[in-house]
Each structure stands twice: as C-alpha cells, then as structure tokens.
Design a protein around this nucleic acid. Structure first.
Lengths: 159, 159
DNA sequence: ATTCTAAATGCAAGTTAGTTGCAACAAGTA
DNA sequence: TACTTGTTGCAACTAACTTGCATTTAGAAT
C-alpha cells in the first residue's frame, strides 16, 4: 500500500504566494499573503487606499479580524524594498503600486482626461540606457527605468 | 532735451516671469512671481515643501508678509494645469515639480542609494510613441511622456 | 515537539500634508 | 476711477501617514 501524500496546510495559490515572500526574505504572514494576492489579482497599478479597500473582499480576511491600516503601509513598504512591487506615477494625484512580474519592460499609457490606463511592453530602453551612462559624469549603472506616456483615449478625444 | 525713458515698475526678470504667467492666462501676482522664480532658479525638480522653504529667501518676499501655504499649493496646481511645470516621480517618497523649458525631451537618472539626480536629454521616444499608438486599442494621441532611469552613482557603487 | 528570538502586527496617539469655505483683496479691463 | 472676476489669507477640517510600545507569531534552534 503506497504512502498517501501528506496533506499540506497551504492551498496551491497560497504556496505560490508564500514562496514569493520567502524567496525575498520576508516572513509569510496573513497580512502579507493577503496584500500580495490583491496585487496579483489587480490588472493595473493601485494605491495604498485601493489595497485597503480590496482586502475585506478576500475570504481569508473575512474569516478573521481585519488588517490594520498601519500594517498595510508597512507591508507595501517591505514589498517595495524587496522589489516585489514598483511605484508608478500615473498622475492620478497619488502614487500607485504594481507587482513586478519578471524583469519586465512594462509601461503605461494614461488618458489625461479620464484616467484610463493601458499597458504596453518593450520600450527599447537598453540602447538609451547605454548612451545615458556613457554621457553621464556621475552614474555607473542603471537597474530600473520608468516610461509613461500621457495622451487622450479615443473616447475623450471625440468629446 | 530728450524725453527720459519712462520708468517701469518691473525689473527685467520680473517682466520675463510676468510674461510667462500672462501668456497662459494667469494673473500676475506676487505669490505666482515668487514661486515661478523659485522654479526658474532650481537646477532640479523640487517638492511643494521645498518651494515653501525656498520662498523666504527671495528679497520680494522678505520685504512683505510671507506667502500662505494654501496659496503655494494653489499656485503650483495652477502652474501644472497650465503646463508651466510638470510633475516627476524620482522615488524620493513624494512628487516633485520642475519647470517645462520648451517642448523639451528632458529626463532624469536617479541614484537609488543617495538620491542624486542628473539630467539627460533626448530619449528618442517618438518612434516608441508611434508604435505604442499603433498597437493600442484605446489610445489616439500621446502629448507627453516621462522617462526616468534608476541606478547607482559612482560614489555609491564603490561603497 | 518545545523553546527561543527577531520580526511583524495592532493599537493609540501624534504629526503633517493637503483641502475647503468664506471673507477680504487686487489684477486686469472698461 | 470703478467694476468684476480671479486670487489670496485665514481658520477649521480631513485624511494620509508615522511613531512608540506592548503583544504576538513565524521560522529556526534545540
């Protein structure tokens, strides 16, 4: 009779999120799993306030006491420090955050009238970065870059 | 005897700043001249707080009552709306603002360790913008763009 | 399993940035 | 010079965010 697989406490999605946390040296806690799940679920960059507003909809959070807002700030800051998320400014009057999927070349077009956000990939910054470093007196390396485009979406331009 | 030149109340620099304000439909007031002068003088993007801190050093301000902080917020917001200044995120924990000199292609490299900021020009975004619009389902025009590079300066990389 | 320790969380209180409503004032115009 | 509208200053307010500290807990050591 074959040994039955040992039951694990973590659901598959939990184990994926838990691994992400563990790999960057963060302890796996309920608030961190929850906030990370919000970022995973979100299709676009979101603010601290939006994270806070989305948390109560998670089953794991509904089942237990709500997460203190101080904790949300600290969790988001730890994610940012560890490079799990990045800060983006879409000129919505505050900063937003989004998960960093890989070493992706991922950017946004924002409508300055209605705020609509669309993604685009591949900004071809590598050659730009090379020449920028060559021309710079002070800089040695560039690890990250942001590119955001601001314009008008089709709906707003025809208003 | 030749007619003496009529004395003008505005110094040359005032008239230049005043013209900038008038050209975008803003009334020429003491707070606006002062804040605009701070932006003109600054070599790099600055925050609302830095503007407020710099104002008392201006002779015109020293000579009269200080400018209310509410007014600073409103002046900066009016400048941003009129396109005199732009908002930039250098990941210093807040938003900064800098004067828009022309239709310039002006960007920054920021040291993620010490915060040093250096300018660079010409990011070659025009072709990027063309392909981004072509690939976009929703967007029709792009009027503005931001490009910021984040890395380590020579000093910090050797620490 | 149990114990241990550093890290993470929650709470309460405080600080600061930024906003709003309104009355007084002043720039630009007739 | 007077008028009108936009601008400013003040006071009060709101919300974002921070700090200090006691409690709890994840992960590692035993």
């Amino acid at each position: 009779m074959p040994t039955p697989a040992k039951p694990t406490r973590l659901t598959p999605v939990h184990s994926e999120l838990a691994t992400m946390l563990a790999q960057c040296g963060l302890k796996v806690t309920r608030p961190r799993l929850a906030v990370l799940k919000i970022f995973k679920n979100s299709t676009h960059p979101i603010s601290v306030q939006e994270v806070a507003a989305a948390l109560p909809s998670l089953p794991t959070i509904q089942a237990s006491p709500p997460i203190n807002s101080v904790t949300i700030y600290r969790v988001i800051d730890s994610f940012r420090q560890k490079g799990l998320i990045r800060e983006v400014n879409l000129r919505h009057g505050h900063l937003d955050y989004e998960i960093i999927e890989h070493l992706d070349d991922h950017h946004h077009i924002v409508c300055t009238s209605c705020g609509l956000v669309e993604d685009f990939y591949g900004c071809g910054a590598t050659s730009l970065i090379r020449t920028a470093i060559k021309n710079s007196r002070n800089f040695a390396t560039v690890n990250e870059h942001t590119v955001e485009l601001f314009g008008l979406c089709r709906k707003c331009i025809s208003l």
